[in-house]
Simulated assay, not measured.
Amino acid sequence: MLLLIPGPVQTRPEVRAAMAVDIAPWDRDFFPEYIAIREKLRDVAGGVAGQHACLPLQGAGHFITEAAIRSFIPPQGQPGAGRLLIPMNGAYAERMARLAREAGRAVVTLPCPDTRGVTPAEIALALAADPAISHVGVVYSETGSGIVNDVPAIGAVVREHGRRMIVDAVSAFGALPFDLKAQPEVDAVVFTSNKCIEGLPGLGFAICPVERVEQAAGQAGSWSFDLADVYATAQRAGWGSFRFTPPVQALHAFGIALDIFLAEGGQPARLARYRENCRILYEGGRALGLKPYLDWKQQGPIIALFHQPEHPGFGLQRFVDALKRRGVLISNFHNTVEPTFRIGCIGHVGPDEIRFALGAMRGALDELGVRRRDAA
Rank of each mutant, 00 (worst) to 15 (best):
S71T: 15
I73K: 04
Q76Y: 11
G77K: 13
G77Y: 10
A81L: 12
A81N: 12
G82S: 14
R83E: 15
L84T: 03
P87W: 06
P87K: 06
G90N: 12
A91P: 01
A93M: 09
A93T: 09
E94N: 05
R98P: 00
R101Y: 00
R101V: 05
G104F: 02
A106C: 03
A106W: 01
V108T: 14
V108K: 12
T109Q: 15
T109C: 12
T109G: 04
C112T: 09
P113Q: 06
D114W: 03
T115A: 05
G117Q: 10
G117S: 10
V118Q: 07
T119K: 12
A121C: 01
E122N: 02
E122L: 11
I123H: 05
I123F: 07
I123E: 05
L127C: 08
A128E: 15
D130V: 07
D130S: 13
P131Q: 05
P131D: 05
P131I: 06
I133G: 02
I133L: 03
S134E: 05
V136Y: 01
G137P: 03
G137L: 03
G137N: 03
V138H: 00
Y140C: 00
S141K: 00
E142F: 03
E142R: 04
G144D: 06
G146I: 09
G146F: 08
G146L: 09
I147V: 15
